[in-house]
Computed example of a mutant assay.
Amino acid sequence: LPPLFALIFAAPPLRGAPAAGYVAALFLLAATAYAVFQVPYVTMPAEMTEDPRERGRVLGWRVGFLGVAILLSGALAPAIAHADGDTPGSYRLMGVAVAVLLAVGMFGAWSATRRAPAVARSEAEPSLRAQLAAARSSRPFLHLAGMWTLQALAIGVMLAGVQYFATYTLGSAGAVTPLFACLIGPLVLFMPLWNRLARRKGVTYAQWCASLLYTAGAVLLAFTGSGGPAVGYAAVVLVGIAYAGLQLLPLTMLADTLAADAAATGRRRAATFTGLWTAAETLAFALGAGVFATVLAVTGFRSSDAAHQVEQPDAALTGITAGMSVLPALLAAASLVLLSRYRVTPAVNRPLQEEPARAD
């Protein structure tokens, strides 16, 4: 993944369709490499412990480090890219810098968990058809995965619009750095509070709170034009507080769902479910950029290169704000329908088809 990420921003001397093809191919390869890492990474908490509280603590630390990494990359990457006036060289340097950060995080995760205990091993379905059949047999997983896919799409659309929102709504391309700080800063600060709320009131209750708060923050973001930059930054802080919960709570619910499925069926299907989860999540984040680009095209946004900013029609400016606020709010609101149908009923443990693997 690190070299593929750097190559996405290598900016070879291509224009038009060849340039788009290059970026698409490299992004596909990078997303595939990410999935190969992410599937076992998400599966491991369900394999390492059967204690829900312990899983919550493990995932809490995961989200905490995730927040620091996103804050570093989200704030550092634009600063590097804009340092020399958005030149191809500055983007190449940014790609290499983030690639190094990716390498440190990924090898660090491997090194820290290679001797971790394994309470049980997951079994994998042999084909995509079998995986989809397994997913259809678990209604809680279907509702949970559908909810998170919609929320991931909402987040992907919003992240795709940050640079446009900073440039055309807030009036400064450099505003993307404080925007990322407002979005990701609360991830580290409020993650323990979301974890505590989940322990006291239940993880589903906490997920409702995070989803509603995200929706409210996205709606407030629509009033940036009339209320000024302060309203925009305040809305992004609310979204960031909610985002802390949305990074932690769905994964906690997924781990609980996997444990309940194992107890009900006697099978360890965590690898199958997390593979589908990661595929849906990756697709949603990728589609986010495409959906926002569609909004720009429909509203008449005028493309330009980094060195020549053109004046945009009022419809395009409205589209940028709506794409950053109204559209993510609608997607988040739609996800609440699936969240309302999510139920996990604790089942009596049945003998597992595989013997638990012993820790090294």
Rank of each mutant, 00 (worst) to 15 (best):
M158C: 08
L338Y: 02
V188W: 14
G185N: 08
W194N: 00
I80V: 11
S304N: 12
D86C: 15
G89S: 15
R62W: 12
E355D: 15
A152R: 02
A322D: 05
A173C: 10
A154H: 05
G174S: 15
T204S: 11
V100S: 11
T167M: 03
F65A: 15
G240N: 06
A30W: 08
A334C: 03
L249E: 06
M147Y: 09
L352D: 09
R136V: 15
L251S: 03
A17R: 14
V237I: 11
A79K: 12
L238R: 00
Y342H: 15
A242G: 10
A77Q: 09
A216H: 06
R199Y: 03
E123L: 02
F9D: 01
L197P: 00
T224Y: 03
A332E: 05
A109S: 14
G319M: 01
G275N: 02
A24P: 02
G95W: 05
V36M: 11
F65I: 13
R267C: 06
A83N: 13
T32G: 14
L179T: 01
K201Q: 13
L14S: 14
A280F: 08
Q131N: 05
L193D: 04
V326K: 04
L132K: 02
Y342C: 10
Y233C: 00
V188S: 12
T265F: 00
G16N: 09
A316Y: 02
R200H: 04
F37P: 07
T113P: 05
L101Q: 03
L93I: 15
W277M: 00
G95T: 09
F27T: 14
G185M: 11
L221D: 00
P346Q: 14
Y22V: 11
V239T: 08
M253C: 05
Q163F: 01
A134V: 07
Y164N: 05
R55T: 02
S90Y: 12
A130R: 00
V344Y: 03
A69Q: 07
Y233Q: 06
L93F: 15
L287F: 07
D84C: 13
L142W: 13
A77C: 06
M191P: 06
A316C: 08
